[in-house]
Simulated scan of single mutants.
Amino acid sequence: MSNNDPVRYRVTEAARLAGVSASTLRLWEQQGLLVPERTGTGQRQYSADDLVRLKKISWLRSERGLNAAAIRDALEQDEPSLETDAPFELGRRLRSLRHGLGRTLEQVGGDIGITASTLSSLERTSQGVSFKTLHDLAEYYGTTVSRLSGEVPETVPTLVKSGGWRTWPQTTPGVTVQLLAEGGRMMDCHRFVLAPGATSEGAYRHDGEEFMHVISGHLEVVLDADQFFDLGPGDSLYFESRRAHSWRNRHEGETILLWINTPPTF
């Protein structure tokens, strides 16, 4: 570790510094009061900011006698800036949905087939999962990727000028999604920019119908695991969204496409 690297504490060290037991820290994590980072092997790591939060949780519990839900409310009221930090809003929405169901990271991760550490990282950073996993999480919580990723502005513009598109949080490496239409419309209209090698990393399905039109590059789309479509510039594809579909950028450079879902079920 270099002198510029932030200090990280293991669970036993963090518990000692916070004046509680290691099992209490694990309980607080299950209750969603604090989600620490994890190493590649799954070991919890607590930052200096985490320790400040742990001490506040301990004080709220011991001195004010608050339960987990009341502690969460108190912490959120103390940190209003976090709620408007757009790049991390998706992760907080996912965490809030999980809390609403009373599920742990391990339970949700097990249900959709990812590790608890991967889900923990997504809830903290809004990054690090495949497009398929993001879709599976949205379906698990009874919502859509569009609702999780987008914010409806106070005034919805009729015209969106070229280059003025709002962009989803970049949850999946190499996949940039830009909004071509705002508000609660009957269609989700998106501009996808896919880096070389970008892929859905698996097939997914949902209600509705889809239209895609490739502007530049090359996109491979697979329907129902046995129908392959190689789309080049100017090519279009229309299909029912209930068909299992996966995709990847087969171009050495970026692939850019127009992608429309109707109704907005993605």
Rank of each mutant, 00 (worst) to 15 (best):
Q127C: 14
Q31V: 07
L137W: 13
Q170M: 15
Y141E: 03
A244Q: 03
R10I: 10
A48K: 11
G232Y: 13
R92Y: 08
L223N: 04
M212P: 01
S117Q: 15
V52M: 05
E210G: 04
Q227P: 02
V222M: 01
G91E: 13
A48M: 08
R44I: 09
L101I: 02
G110K: 07
Y238H: 11
L237H: 06
T144P: 05
T39V: 03
E63Q: 10
Y9E: 12
S62M: 06
S2I: 10
F211Q: 15
T172D: 04
A198D: 07
T176Y: 02
S62Q: 06
L105N: 10
G102A: 07
E13I: 08
T172Y: 06
I71G: 09
I112C: 04
K55A: 11
L257R: 13
G174A: 13
L90E: 14
S200V: 04
H251C: 08
E13Q: 11
Q43Y: 15
S96M: 11
V156C: 10
L179S: 08
L237G: 10
L101K: 02
W168R: 04
V177C: 13
E240I: 04
R147A: 12
S246T: 10
L54M: 12
P6S: 01
E220V: 02
F266N: 14
K55V: 03
W259V: 06
V221N: 05
V160S: 14
S236N: 12
R124I: 00
D73H: 13
H135A: 03
G202F: 01
L122D: 13
R98A: 01
L17A: 13
L60M: 07
E37P: 01
E63H: 13
R53Y: 00
D111E: 05
G150W: 00
Q170K: 11
T172F: 04
K132T: 15
H213F: 03
S2V: 06
R166A: 03
G217W: 13
L137I: 13
V145F: 05
G164W: 09
D5Q: 03
P80L: 02
G102D: 10
S117R: 14
D5C: 11
D111R: 05
D50T: 07
P157C: 13
G208E: 10
R8W: 03
S236K: 10
G184E: 03
T84C: 00
E83Q: 03
H218P: 00
V145L: 12
R185V: 09
L75Y: 08
A203S: 06
D235S: 00
N249A: 06
T84P: 00
D230E: 01
S81R: 09
N261L: 00
S149A: 07
Q178I: 01
L101R: 12
F228N: 00
G19D: 04
G110Y: 00
S200H: 11
E63W: 04
S23K: 03
Q77E: 15
Q77I: 11
G217C: 07
T262E: 02
Y9K: 09
R26G: 01
T115Y: 07
T104F: 10
R103Q: 05
P87S: 08
A70R: 10
L82R: 09
N3P: 01
G232T: 00
L179W: 10
L159Y: 09
G183R: 02
